[in-house]
Simulated assay, not measured.
Amino acid sequence: MNKFHGTGVALVTPFNADGTVDYDGLNRLINHLIDGKVEYLVSLGTTGEASTLNKEEKKKIWEFTAEVNNGRLPLVAGIGGNDTTEVINSIKIFETNGYDAILSASPYYNKPTQEGIYQHYKAISESSQLPVLLYNVPGRTASNVSPETTCRLAADCKNIIGTKEASGSFDQFNQIMRDKPADFLLISGDDPVAMPMISLGAVGVISVIGNALPKQLSDMIRLSLKGDYTAALPKHLDLIEFTRMMFAEGNPAGVKAALKQLGVCDDYVRLPLVGVSDGLRKAITAETTRITA
């Protein structure tokens, strides 16, 4: 599965002032990322504000993204939720044309046991025509997919090919790397720790900041994957302040402010999210200008 090595970007969903989807902005974003030499795209992950999009909007965004991409990069669709039956139904009706995998976040709010998480993903695996990437993000779901559950799924479900790990726990990363099947992919779900995770054996990142800075981030990730940490480290350190700003008042408000500065799309978000404060916007503008100068 080398197509998922390197930099994947979780696309934002651009909106117009009236709250409708800005397809011109999405077109510019996709081409901005392809021009920035990222390795693959993720449509309607958390950063895409999928939780505030209805079924018809999601369907149109997936179709539009595949059309604009036109086979240039691998595509991943974010399809998750806390109702297993509904997730399975969504996967069954998903038009797979142009897509290479599904990324599915662990169930949120319900706080299932590890056995419940295992059975949830096993059912998804059995229903999906496409390979599946797990997504562990305890800060959003209020439950952790343990290393034992991750590796059990990796061993038992052959079309579960990897995990986007956003637990922030290096103890967890270590256990997954030690116990997983050799071909199972560990992917960083957090921009700030992508480089150190690669040093442990992760194969790359699914990024937020890559929306705005695809070339700067993907250059650093490729150097890290080559083992050239001497060259990668300065690039990693140069992105630290920008990355901090992206999450200071929530995702994707921060990265949308940077994208507006770059002229890619506007920075509208859907409630309950709101845009960044004026002070943070000025700081993001200055840092974006510095890095892209």
Rank of each mutant, 00 (worst) to 15 (best):
N2G: 09
F4A: 08
F4L: 15
L11P: 08
V12H: 05
T20G: 13
L29Y: 04
I30A: 08
H32Y: 06
D35E: 13
G36R: 03
G36D: 14
G36V: 12
G36M: 12
V38I: 15
E39D: 15
L41P: 04
G45C: 02
T47W: 02
E57Q: 13
I61C: 08
I61D: 10
E63N: 13
A66I: 14
N69Y: 06
N70I: 05
R72E: 15
R72M: 10
P74W: 02
L75W: 02
G78V: 07
I79L: 10
V87W: 03
I88T: 14
I88R: 07
N89Q: 13
I91Y: 01
I93Y: 03
G98Q: 09
Y99V: 08
D100N: 08
D100Q: 06
S104K: 01
S106E: 10
P107R: 04
Y108T: 13
Y109M: 14
K111P: 10
P112L: 14
E115H: 12
G116V: 15
Y118I: 10
H120A: 08
A123K: 12
A123V: 04
S125T: 11
S128R: 09
L130N: 14
L134V: 14
L134Q: 12
Y135Q: 05
T141M: 06
P147W: 02
C151G: 02
R152V: 09
R152P: 12
L153E: 09
A154M: 05
D156Q: 06
C157N: 15
K158A: 14
K158W: 01
N159F: 04
I160D: 11
I161M: 12
T163L: 14
A166C: 12
S169H: 03
D171Q: 05
I176S: 06
D179P: 04
D179K: 04
D183P: 03
L185D: 07
D190S: 13
D191Y: 01
M195L: 15
M197Q: 11
A202E: 10
V203C: 15
G210E: 11
A212C: 09
S218A: 11
S218Q: 07
I221S: 00
L223M: 09
K226D: 11
G227D: 08
G227I: 11
T230M: 01
A232V: 04
I240H: 02
E241I: 06
F242G: 01
M245I: 01
A248I: 03
E249W: 00
N251E: 00
N251P: 00
K256G: 09
A258D: 05
K260Q: 14
K260P: 03
Q261K: 12
L262P: 04
G263C: 08
Y268D: 07
Y268K: 08
R270K: 09
P272V: 07
P272N: 05
V276D: 07
S277I: 12
G279E: 11
L280Q: 03
L280I: 11
L280M: 07
R281F: 09
A283H: 08
T285S: 09
A293H: 10
